[in-house]
Structure formats: C-alpha cells, structure tokens
Simulated scan of single mutants.
Amino acid sequence: MAGIFDQITGQPGGDSQSDQKELDEHLDELSNTDSQLSVDQTIEGAARTDKRLREAAQELLRYGLLEESQKPNLYRVSISQLELLNGVLEPFDFSAQVDEIRGLIFLVVKKPDDSAEFDEWSHPLVRKQRLTLEQSLLVAILRQYFIVYEQEAGTGASQAVVAVDELIPQLQVYLGDTGSEAKERNRMLQLLDQLKGHGLVSAPDTHDRITIRPMIAHLANPENLEVLLQWMHTRVKGSDDPQDKNEGDA
C-alpha cells in the first residue's frame, strides 16, 4: 500500500484508485470539521449580547430594579441601550420602565395582547410575593414619609431618612400595642427587613435610621394604599367606640 506521500504525488506503490478514494474521504472529513468549527465560532460570536447589557438585564431579573445611586454604570448602560435591553427582556414578557427623575429603572410585566383579564402576579418569573397586611400598612406609612420628603426636597432627592423608633408608634395605631417594647421593635425590624428585599428601604444604619428607596413610589397604587389606611382607621375607631362595644355585648 502506498504511503501518504505516494498518494499525494500519484506515485505507484499500491492500489492507486482505492488509496486515492481513501485520501479524498480523509480530506473531505477534515474540510467538514473545519467548516463546522467556523460556523460554530460565527454563531457564537453573533449570538452574544454586549457584556454590560447582559449584566444589566441579569441585575433587573435578579432584583427587579436598578438604582442610579447604587449601580451607576449599569444604569447608564440601560438608559443608553434601552431598546436593546427591552429586546433582551421581551421573551420573558418583561419590559424596563424608566423613572429618570428618581434615577430608577424597574421591571414591569407586559400585558398579553390576547388577555382581557391580566394579573401580573401570575407571571412565573415574578420574584416578589404579595405583601401581607402588616407589610402593606408599613409601605403606606413609609410612602407618606417619602411624599412629604419629596415635597420639601424636590422630586428625585434621595435621602428620605426616618428613624426606626419613629415608625413603631405609627404602626401601633393600626395594629395595636403588644405591651412589650422589645416585641414591638423586633416586629418593626422584621417588617423592614422584608421590605428591604423588595428594594423599598435600606438596612438600618448605626443610628437606627433607614433610607426610603424611590421604588416605593412605583410598587403599589397610591389610591389603594390610601383606601387601606382609611379602612384601618375605621376599624381602629370602631373598636374604640363604647357604643359599638355595648352593641357587640348585646
């Protein structure tokens, strides 16, 4: 049988037709392998989204929001490439909504075109859970503080700070007093920690103060929060009314 040099040069040394066929098959195999590698490399290169844009999309999917004060580089990337960012989010039925005044980008669930009834909480990738009554009350209270702060400092100001001890009596108005300062404080700290996971407040600082984040302006419908507070006021007032108590005893 001819060696590889004989096959290339066509010199005798064996079954030339058989050897030539084997050589052609070998060269075809190498050619196909090289072509496939080239195609794979081309596809990989074309399919990759810009790294910073990927990081911005991942941050939004992870936390639901981007704050300019916390992630300035990703925020700038998102603002400058908002259309591309929404293209990345579109297959998940999400879109990025911008509040430039407050330096905030947050996810919203896109309403399906073929759905008359729409519940964003039914989205399979929504990280947030429905707020409990206690959490909703605290959100309503914190939002009032935030509105007052923005009225005084201007929309977009980012240092809406309130002391934990100042919030405790506000919540007691609606939920009552447990009779233990330690329990009241522990309840408040637990609620604040839960709201921190929603991007609404910061962790308490060394002076036991928390910063109210601008996301609180978008999390819940303000009319719904006001109705909740009015309803709770009515319940508290009714429970303190002696006439209502006498009617209840009767």
Results as ranks from 00 to 15, higher is better:
188 M>V: 00
222 P>Y: 05
242 P>E: 06
198 H>V: 03
163 A>P: 04
94 F>W: 12
212 I>E: 00
101 I>S: 10
142 L>H: 02
206 T>Y: 02
236 V>L: 04
239 S>M: 15
48 R>I: 13
132 T>N: 05
102 R>V: 02
194 Q>D: 11
174 Y>F: 15
112 P>V: 03
107 L>R: 00
16 S>F: 12
227 V>A: 14
42 T>P: 03
94 F>Y: 14
169 P>V: 06
16 S>P: 06
56 A>N: 02
218 H>D: 02
218 H>K: 08
140 A>R: 03
185 R>W: 04
110 K>N: 12
48 R>N: 11
129 Q>A: 15
243 Q>R: 13
237 K>H: 12
50 D>F: 04
186 N>G: 04
66 L>P: 00
189 L>A: 07
194 Q>N: 14
32 N>Q: 13
68 E>S: 09
82 L>T: 03
200 L>V: 00
155 T>A: 11
86 N>D: 15
238 G>Y: 01
68 E>H: 08
82 L>Q: 05
228 L>A: 03
18 S>E: 14
136 S>L: 15
105 I>Y: 00
23 L>C: 07
8 I>V: 14
59 E>W: 07
176 G>A: 06
133 L>W: 06
226 E>V: 05
53 L>G: 03
113 D>M: 09
229 L>C: 00
250 A>N: 11
55 E>F: 05
30 L>V: 12
205 D>G: 02
10 G>W: 09
134 E>T: 08
79 I>R: 03
227 V>L: 15
55 E>D: 15
98 V>S: 02
232 M>H: 09
125 L>H: 10
158 S>C: 08
35 S>K: 11
126 V>H: 01
244 D>K: 13
48 R>L: 11
119 D>K: 05
95 S>H: 10
221 N>L: 08
48 R>S: 10
